[in-house]
Amino acid sequence: SQMADLKSLAKHMFEAYLKNFNMNKTKARAILTGKANIPPFVIHDMETLRLAEENLVSKQAVNGIQNKEAEVRIFQRCQCTSVETVRELTEFAKCIPEFINLDLNDQVTLLKYGVYEAMFAMLASIMNKDGLLVAYGNGFMTREFLKSLRKPFNEIMEPKFEFAMKFNALELDDSDLSLFVAAIILSGDRPGLVNVSQIEQMQETIVQALRLHLHSNHPDAIYLFPKLLQKMADLRQLVTEHAQLVQKIKKTEADTFLHPLLQEIYRDMY
């Protein structure tokens, strides 16, 4: 009966994941492997960037950034996507059993510290070694183009590609990722949590469901579960370095603007 409960929990989290995230690995892989009806528009230099800006993204979202430097425009659009993903992650978190019954300040803390780790784990789904999907899968920005941007903007994505290549080698699917993301959110050691034991218990249940699910979904990958636990630690490091880089950009780049929601998340983070 306990195993049946864990299986139904896995199913529930997978459904919540499909419902709340606009993009997922199945959709992304179809586009990246050329199975989509329309192949994504490739952004590989300043000219193709301009073309994509004119044709792929809504004009409404670009208010005030059209005349800024390419690096700044890309940075601002990354923020739009991040804000949207934080909104999706919040809705997904609310679907985790008992999450909405937690102390509201603890819910905030779990999201504050969890959203970027979850975001970088899911970012791997839309990446391959040559680039990543942008504009809801209608565009593909090359890794080389991102590397060719001026400092410090060229340093933002490369560590995420390096993580993604190792993470993608584990060949997780969306059902695995749904439990992995839930486990990241329910970390009982985030600074300032009040009801630690309650959150630890919830995470334990999700982690058990993940272990059981991996066992049946990847019967031949015997070390997959411990490898994933290691990835949770790697993601913390990735977010710490990302937060430091964003602080640096905020200080040194007068032309950049940090969205209020992201400011809330980064403030006093690490």
Binding site: R87, L261, E264
Partner: peptide
């Protein structure tokens, strides 16, 4: 609470708009 008012709002009201 004031420090994280948008996160609070998102948690309590999913329809609240958050635009860039």
């Amino acid at each position: 609470k004031e420090k994280h008012k948008i996160l609070h709002r998102l948690l309590q009201d999913s329809t609240s708009p958050v635009d860039l």
